[in-house]
Design a binder for these strands. Structure first.
Lengths: 205, 205, 205, 205
DNA sequence: AATGAATGAGACTTCATTCAT
DNA sequence: AATGAATGAAGTCTCATTCAT
């Protein structure tokens, strides 16, 4: 059970995060500053330290929220369909859609090369098909799609890694070109999710 | 003909840019500051304003240089081979290699969503196969690879755009995972350039 | 008779003081802060204001406790021996020992030149042999040691004052050189208490 | 040869130091702050960083200046007289006088227990008569005063150390009791320098 | 008795930039 | 061409304290 106070505190925390997010959207992630947040929520800078230990914590929470959203969306998409080809398309589409909903966090998370971040986000290493759920899901999907053909684990892992990186690239590009004509954007998303990704996954040449 | 003065000035400009680059490599792009540059080239901050109007200009030139390098590398690769499939592979490989040589600039250029930047870097819009040389080269390559099959221009443009975005994503991922085992990195680069990209370019399904 | 409440309150007060002391020992006297105390005793900063009017009061009580400890130790030492020479040595040794037990408070008390503090700690003024117990004890001791020689009160007072200041100096130095080899420290304390102080007290030349 | 600019810069540096000193005298050493200095010299805080790298540097220079002054004064006094007894008195008097001229620095230097400071100020360790000039001068003086009596090096070193600590204690006490009646102060200084110190140096009992 | 929210002042420092010389 | 002086804004964070609950 939460008391009113706890709810208020939670609300305040969320207000701070929202403000931080708005700044990030307008001026970029690096422009987030305690001062600006304070001005936006109309409180003193000091107060913010009541709710967060440091600016770093605020940013970190922001990123985690974004990352969680992406993971959830991906998992949901994976469960929604059975047929491997359709599953792959659904996952790709979900990934692109969610990325576009949290452009700032997405960009940062996939662009930050600090060791502490990379530890969690890397997936190009050998064996990623076992250690990274997303790559694992992709790899299985690929194997399911290519039943009958001879194929080793390495090949499916490399393919999964390639698809992941490629999709991230497309997401990023769509984020950066934020003023792209919506119809064209939709066309690209569809083509990529339904056609290109499927081609990548087809282990033949 | 250039006078000595002009040559000196050019040299100075380049020194400044080089210093800025080194800072970016060590501490990240945002860490570039007039003061740090000044200290590095052992001149006063003020002097820098003789050669560049503002910090922004320095950064901007830096990015342009990076972009130019990428374009050159791509064009060279394109000319080096005739056969379309091999040409595509060569271009992809060259792109990844060059991106890894200028990680900071590459990341910034492809991540910056400022209108002024996007104007030059966007290529997802309809008609990019005509306006953007890189996309054009890709599109032609794709068409050459698929002679005999029926295919409209839109399809080849969408495919070219997809390949461009995907390759950029792979480049970015390789940059971020800078501590990836070199052998594994080489394997991924090869697999992506020789196999995955070719699959993407094969317009069938 | 004290009620439970009063005892609890007293306990709380002492907890606060103890916490303050620990901070002082670890980070220095100036590092004492209401917040740190609060964190240490696991209460809110606000609560501390129920028990003390201000940070200043806490610090002040802390110092008084230190001063009292010193006085007690000195008095005990004085009573323990009869022979004047041995008494002087015992007092000196006790003073140094106690000072080393409460290094922070000792340093502050004898270094603070705020009028309000100096009022209680000064002893160089004329007539201190009457107004300051410690100086009085010293002066008497000196007189006892020099029976037979002609000597006026002024001389014994000046000598007592000198010994007091000198011993404080030695205490301070031992505190500051806190990493001095223990054996060497013991040797210096002994030499000073048994020999040097006695020489100072011998009114002849 | 110094240019006008260099002289101006030097002047500015000194102004900053002077301001810092004044703050220390009025509000204590810890009250020194870049802001306050800036306000006092009527410039912006930023400018101060033109002349000093950090607040720490300012404080450090201040202390060094004080320490140097003390050393010089002591050396001068030592050279001024030949007879050992008189030399000891002259040194003591000079030390007390100079200490009273730079009360803040003196207190800090002899009270700071940071390892980096203690490394330079310690003199209670065994062998200080060789490593510390001041102790060396004192030890020699003591030996000169006690020619004819049997005495080992250890004894003279311990005595020198004791005198040094005692005199520092007296200096500190005089600084703290800054409102002591001037006549009484003079009397104490004289008594201590002429009588007490001499007794301490007389190796008999 | 105890809490949490909130403030306002102040701490050090870095930065891009301008200007007179 | 080059310097050094100077500014003003902004950055993060810590602190003592008050107040309503």
């Amino acid at each position: 059970m939460t008391t009113r106070r706890e709810r208020d505190a939670l609300q305040m925390k969320q207000d701070i995060l929202t403000a931080a997010n708005q700044i990030a959207e307008k001026e970029g992630f690096d422009a987030i500053s305690i001062r600006k947040i304070a001005k936006m929520i109309e409180y003193t800078p000091s107060l913010i330290y009541h709710y967060f230990a440091s600016k770093e914590e605020i940013v970190s929470v922001l990123l985690k929220q974004g990352y969680a959203k992406l993971a959830t969306s991906l998992a949901t998409a994976a469960k929604s369909v059975e047929a491997p080809k359709q599953k792959l398309t659904a996952m790709t589409r979900a990934f692109l859609k969610t990325a576009l909903e949290i452009p700032q966090e997405f960009t940062i998370v996939h662009t930050d090369d600090a060791e502490s971040v990379v530890q969690h986000t890397s997936y190009l290493f050998k064996g990623a098909a076992e250690k990274r759920i997303a790559i694992q899901m992709l790899a299985r999907c690929i194997q399911d799609m290519n039943q009958g053909r001879e194929m080793d684990d390495e090949q499916s892992e490399l393919t999964a890694q390639s698809i992941a990186a490629a999709t991230m690239g497309m997401a990023l590009k769509l984020i950066v070109e934020k003023n792209l004509d919506p119809q064209q954007r939709e066309k690209i998303i569809s083509y990529f999710s339904e056609t290109v990704v499927v081609r990548m996954a087809s282990l033949e040449e």
